[in-house]
Design a protein around this nucleic acid. Sequence first.
DNA 1: GTCTATATGCGGATAGAC
DNA 2: GTCTATCCGCATATAGAC
Lengths: 193, 193
Amino acid sequence: MPYPAKTDRKAILAAALEQVARDGLAALSLRSVAATLGLAPNALYRYFADRAALEAALAEESQRQLFGVLQTAVGRKPPEAAIRGLARAYVRFARDKPQLFALTLLPSVAEAGSEPAHIAMWRFVQQQVSNLYGARQTPEAAVALWAFLHGMTALEAAGVLGSQKPTSSFEFGLQLWIAAAPPAIHQPSTSRG
Amino acid sequence: MPYPAKTDRKAILAAALEQVARDGLAALSLRSVAATLGLAPNALYRYFADRAALEAALAEESQRQLFGVLQTAVGRKPPEAAIRGLARAYVRFARDKPQLFALTLLPSVAEAGSEPAHIAMWRFVQQQVSNLYGARQTPEAAVALWAFLHGMTALEAAGVLGSQKPTSSFEFGLQLWIAAAPPAIHQPSTSRG
DNA sequence: GTCTATATGCGGATAGAC
DNA sequence: GTCTATCCGCATATAGAC
């Protein structure tokens, strides 16, 4: 083999993800990724059809990472604590890795045979919400919670809050959402039946 | 004068805004704007230092437009109806002009001597919220509402809601937020004291 | 079948002529 | 204030070395 593989999907994704986390998706260039890996400027086209394909793979990876963070934050906590942990982890992820977080809502492409991360993540979130809200209002409540959390990250990232402390608004909205949960379902701590 | 002025800031902004509304900010090119105006590729640099300056001016304009829409939606409605109208208008603006709306949270630069649109808009929103919530919790409540609305637009635009109807979640979250307003202040319809 | 070399087109930005 | 000319960086695409 005169030209053994110098790289693979995994290495490319790792290098690209590092650059995105540092400079943002818009600043990403296939050339710089190739350079990092010691390759010709366009060697990556063998692994990704075009820039869009690479971006989709990066989006998938960002969603996997966010999902992992949320799972860790929830752990085996009872419903309300689980939601609080999840909410805090979501906002923190967005704050700590803003460039990565921006990929979270982009169209993604999972590797063949594996479930897209955003599907599994959304199912997970809905499960946590249903533990607190019951099945009836879960879809609406879950979307509303997600929207609130995502909006908070967007406002904070945009810097439009100015002197306004994000934390107090975060607590305000989250408390408001939790307080609206049906009290009957609020009691049992986990869904073990 | 061998080279009389063929254009001005206003004409450039109008042409650029039209292209942004159609194809998005990322697809905007100074060249295409110049071509639309019948100018050399770099003639715009006389009016804007660089692309970023043009983008900031476009952001300012988008914020002015959004502010106008919100003002119209509120009109002289009583507090709760004003909030509902404002919320609906915000989401509708984002849905109808997504590319323009995306400029709304970008750093903007107002023309010399005039107040930045986002400042005036935020003051306006807080006034509407205070009519319903009273002064005490207004800052937190206003940010929480804005975050929820913005998040809804982001989720809808990203297409992550799938079969989930956005409207029901919108109503759910909005109702939840309104119901949390202090009932004592909920009564008087306007602040005329 | 992976990599290199190369050509083309597009966009941002600057220098200097008029 | 506009023009021509030019440089740079990036993405796409193809031909050819090995």
